[in-house]
Amino acid sequence: MTADVLIVLGGYLLGSIPFGYVLPRLLRGDDIRRHGSGNVGASNVWRVYGPSLGVPVALLDVAKGLVPALVGLKVSGDWVAVLAGAAAMAGHARPVFLRFSKGGKMVATAGGVALALAPLAAAACLVVWLVVFAAFRYASLASIVTAIALPFACLAFDAPWPVVGFAAIAAVGVLALHRHNIRRLLAGSEPRFSGRLLRGAR
């Protein structure tokens, strides 16, 4: 029981490391929260600084979900893995190291958890994200569609019920954090990623 609590707590602390804040601060001497959406997630980092920082932040945010979920799965099973992954997502959204201020929108971290718990479903959802993003150039829309697809993909690939439940709750959480993006998408004011941003390395 003590080990389980430590794994979940470790998941929250790992999730709280704001790589989207730390990398630009170290490498550019800049505060990402002053730019774009003010978000410390990978999408905003990519939009502001290009793929040279956006890609590493995205990979590190995925790892924040993958590692605690995988440790929980190996040590204690599905339920602890789900709780540790959920804790990592909570840490990403409200990081203790930023005094519980606004963090990221949990998409990459949720993807890391899914990769640990349901790798085939995670791979299918990655394809969904890439297709939607390539078609429309909205990272938010790709994230929203992928979040909705995740529980269905978990069902399709016969993931355990705790994992399916996690996927459904994670989808609701991601949609809630994207509520302003949804309004802008409906209003036609959501910014797209341009070709320059996709290539650039500001």
Rank of each mutant, 00 (worst) to 15 (best):
R202I: 15
S52T: 14
A116E: 05
P95E: 03
L155N: 01
L126Y: 13
R192T: 14
N181A: 12
G200P: 13
A201I: 12
I17K: 01
V80S: 13
D61N: 06
V45Q: 07
R47F: 10
A108Y: 00
L98P: 03
I32L: 15
I144N: 07
V40C: 11
N44A: 03
G103E: 08
R25N: 09
T109K: 07
V62D: 00
A93S: 15
R202S: 15
L27S: 04
I7N: 00
G173H: 02
A110Y: 00
A108D: 01
R94Y: 15
V164W: 09
A116I: 05
V55P: 00
L27Q: 03
K105A: 00
D4R: 07
V5M: 09
P56I: 04
L83K: 10
V164C: 11
V163F: 04
L120R: 08
S76I: 08
V71S: 05
A156L: 13
V128G: 12
A58Y: 08
A167W: 07
A121V: 09
A90C: 10
K102Q: 11
Y12E: 06
V8H: 02
A93V: 09
V163Q: 07
R183K: 15
A121S: 14
L9I: 14
S16I: 10
F193W: 04
K102T: 13
V57E: 00
R184G: 01
L98A: 09
F136W: 13
K105P: 01
R184Y: 07
V164P: 06
V57W: 00
V82D: 10
G188C: 04
P18L: 04
V62F: 05
P162A: 13
L150P: 03
I32D: 10
L150F: 10
Y49G: 06
L13Q: 05
L59K: 01
A170D: 12
P191D: 11
A159C: 12
V80E: 12
Y138D: 02
P119S: 04
F152W: 10
